[in-house]
Design a protein around this nucleic acid. Structure first.
Lengths: 225, 225
DNA sequence: ACCGTTCTTGTCCGTATGGACAACAGCTGG
DNA sequence: CCAGCTGTTGTCCATACGGACAAGAACGGT
């Protein structure tokens, strides 16, 4: 059925499929058979690459964390701090956030996941703090305590993302507006500065192949053994 | 085994047990047998009260929303706005938040749950906006747009709650500090005002009986049929 | 051309779940 | 005291899951 693949390629394929399904169905509901069907192989094959369901999930989430943060670092260091800030604070693609929200709800009963989440969150705060620092150095903004400002803004971004993605209470425009306004007030920027410098491109992708996370995966189909 | 109970009492008992288990294991993992074991009855009895698992979950979540918001309204109207604000912005008990976070991750595949969440969120924002309004009227604070301030602070509270409860990155003291500082800046209060007026008592309870949510439910026990 | 490696499949098993149902038991009204 | 209602139990069933394993098929080195 499925053509024989390079082991590494198949692994990545399985991890990408797992992330798609987690975004759609949640960590707890994704079964090995689901993943196999999404990839187009027999469910026994999954076990050939991942000894247990838990390990699959753990590696999939690790891959997500890794992919989300890779590369941006030096790039962000070169662009104007105001632009970098506007980019960082803009809302993330929906399917990504579904995975994060699911991870939050799963973290307190999965220590590995909690560790990965903690590392990821610290990374996010650190990068944002660095942007704020550069903003203050450039004289275009002000901050007494970049770390504290970063922590507050990170929390705000997550909270707004919940309102936007999970509850669907506000649209993307308003989500950005809420965060931008708060950031401008906090960092001594004039109102509207951030919206004006928002770059056009969206942030990174997930899967190993070029397709976005939720490319496949229509309404949950029936499965067989 | 279990003594014959008043139907309404047994219903409430089942709903309370369900919420306890959802806080511990998540919506997706709670089984009818789990609930029955938690209550101390046979799993067939659950079906006598709730025709299907989905309905049980839906009603349990409705009960949670209802219990969380009931009563406080007129009470909040009588206390000093600064004190009411400090109370409203302080972090909610942990087990409650686990249910909310789980609900967020479940909402996009459960329309009823999404509707309940939306209503709840709107209620929260409305109440906070009312407090901010009274604060401005009293002259002790200022707000150009109470609704916008309420939306931003609600998002911040949720985001901080994630950092505090889900990721366990910050403690309760720091969680309150982050929110209080942001609120004070936004509403023209002097730094420290909110921390100084935090009331002593915590917010409401859930279950029908007096016990807190996670009273029972140690580390997940083995079950039998 | 052969042969070992390993990617891949098909099938089996024990377990757990949601749901259905008949029998039992305690309460209430006549 | 009896009959009916209903809360409660125990048991059964079809399904689906994670995991295990042996057999098949493609690939690579010699």
């Amino acid at each position: 059925m499925a053509t024989r693949l390079d082991p590494a390629a198949r692994r990545d394929q399985i991890l990408a499929a797992t992330l798609r399904l987690v975004a759609r169905d949640g960590f707890a509901r994704v079964t090995l058979r689901d993943v196999a069907a999404e990839v187009g192989v027999v469910h026994g094959l999954i076990r050939h690459y991942f000894p247990t369901r838990e390990q699959l999930m753990a590696e999939a989430f690790d891959a997500a964390v890794l992919a989300e943060l890779e590369g941006d670092e030096e790039v962000a260091e070169r662009v104007e701090p105001v632009e970098a800030l506007a980019d960082w604070l803009t809302t993330t693609p929906r399917d990504h956030y579904f995975v994060w929200i699911d991870a939050w709800s799963e973290a307190h009963r999965n220590p590995e996941l909690l560790a990965a989440l903690t590392r990821h969150h610290r990374d996010c705060e650190r990068r944002l703090a660095r942007i704020i620092e550069r903003l203050a150095e450039s004289g275009r903004g002000a901050s007494d305590d970049p770390a504290a400002d970063a922590k507050m803004l990170t929390a705000l971004v997550d909270g707004v993302a919940v309102q936007h993605h999970a509850i669907d209470l506000i649209g993307r425009a308003e989500a950005d507006r809420v965060v931008y306004t708060a950031a401008e007030d906090r960092l001594g920027l004039e109102r509207g500065t951030l919206a004006a410098s928002r770059p056009t491109a969206a942030r990174g992708q997930w899967a190993a192949d070029a397709s976005p996370v939720a490319a496949t995966a229509g309404p949950r189909a029936d499965r067989r053994d």
